[in-house]
Design a protein around this nucleic acid. Structure first.
Lengths: 259, 259
DNA sequence: TCGAGGACCGGATCAATGGTCCGGTACTCG
DNA sequence: CGAGTACCGGACCATTGATCCGGTCCTCGA
């Protein structure tokens, strides 16, 4: 009798996890799902994110996720917004608006590059609180600097779109596409040298191409242009220490993604 | 005898398609597949493109496509490159390089907006002949204008990334997301008015936001910045037929200060 | 003390999709 | 005329997002 298997309905008591001890972590919150999704995306890329995979990493069943989240798209939207929490919003500073904006934009770019999968998700409406808060800062700072009306819209758009495009492009050619792609492209250029002579020598894959400084340069141009519209007296293309340090900031890090 | 059925092996001759007449079009070429894919994408959007659907529209079996194309990604890559054939490359003109570049960039943008699904595909390496030819023109024109070294890279990158980001953003908020999304966003802004005061009134969905002129303005800023790097003695703002208008007079007056 | 209700979990299952296997058909060329 | 080749497609498979429905555990009031 002692050894008898008496068949409790779902398995033996002793084989079952001791009640709630199995779930040491809080039962499984939206936040945990999002955090794990980001980790998974960082490690394996966008196309490897599966609900089953994600569930497995969380030690739960795949269908359980749907209790906390409506669709997979929700997970992506939440993850996308979540990473922008790492972009610190500069202190509002009426004096040096350029520095503030440059810092924000550079931080934005740094985050996008730290999570290369995010670039591919930029084609969806970003309405999360983190994104909105930073957009708010951008608009407010520009407005405070005297940029108004159509110029305000154009300035905000120009800056955002520039970061987005830059990050997307860079993520495509560095993190996203492995070196294989890049090498193949290089070969392609060389092979069709007579067809694309300039590209072959000065193209984007040329030796002197430096993503960070190129980005900083373009940012300076945009800021200069915006600056000029407010009718300030400073020259349009001055030495801009702000964006230079911004580029430095963007290149740094990578090792410790302070959360 | 005339009415006799003599039973050709697989069905009657008259019931069988007259040999090759059934396929009026060339049997099914890569080009036809790509063209139909573009049509399908234009009509129904990116996520509705299925190999089966595509095959059905072509009046063929889905698996047949794989004879002409290796994967679905190939179809997307080919389609993406194909639409850029519509961007006409301006005549090389040593004099007015700004006009040429502005035309190219604007054409690029126009194509991206005409095929909103393309924006979502920008995150993949674009190495097709059409794209390369236009990049070649961009680099060559800049080089001919005296933009060299890091400035050349930065200029080409800035311009490309700006178009890409702009198109991606606009496609997200107009064609891609239906008005529903936009209206919801509008509501969101209004609801959180105290949290995002500036966004609520001056935000991207404000009444005076005009995609086209905003884009033109930003493009002018970039071109001005590029112009300034060539060491010409002219002030950074030059005569540019279409896009300038607004930005000009703002900087006009005190241009004497500094350089 | 108990039992009803709700928060939370997951196995079985479905439909859609990208892609492969393999056997066909029709045309061409020697 | 027979073999080779370009081309086609039905059957099939694994993966994936998502749902159904039945379970388990906790809470809270009577």
């Amino acid at each position: 009798m002692l050894g008898t298997k008496h068949s409790g309905s779902p398995g033996d008591v002793w084989l079952r996890p001791p009640a709630r001890a199995a779930r040491e972590a809080p039962p499984l919150s939206r936040d945990r799902i999002v955090a794990e999704a980001i980790a998974l995306l960082d490690e394996e890329g966008a196309d490897r994110l599966t609900m089953r995979r994600l569930a497995e990493r969380l030690g739960t069943g795949s269908t359980t996720l749907y209790w906390h989240v409506k669709t997979k798209n929700d997970v992506l939207d939440l993850a996308l917004d979540a990473i922008f929490a790492a972009v610190e919003i500069p202190r509002a500073d009426g004096q040096d608006w350029r520095a503030g904006i440059a810092a924000l934009i550079s931080g934005w770019r740094a985050v996008l590059l730290e999570h290369p999968w995010s670039a591919a998700l930029l084609g969806r409406p970003m309405l999360g609180p983190n994104v909105l808060a930073r957009s708010e800062f951008l608009y407010a700072t520009l407005l405070g600097a005297g940029v108004t009306g159509p110029h305000l819209t154009a300035a905000a758009y120009g800056l955002s779109n520039y970061v987005i495009g830059s990050a997307l492009m860079q993520a495509t050619w560095t993190a996203g596409g492995e070196q294989a792609t890049r090498a193949a492209a290089q070969d392609r250029f060389r092979a069709d040298r007579e067809r694309y002579p300039v590209l072959a020598t000065h193209g984007p894959l040329a030796a002197d191409s430096d993503w960070d400084s190129s980005f900083a340069l373009g940012l300076t141009w945009l800021l200069d242009g915006i600056h000029a519209t407010v009718g300030a007296s400073m020259p349009a293309c001055a030495t801009d220490e702000a964006s230079v340090s911004a580029a430095r900031h963007a290149r740094r890090g990578r090792g410790s993604s302070g959360e």
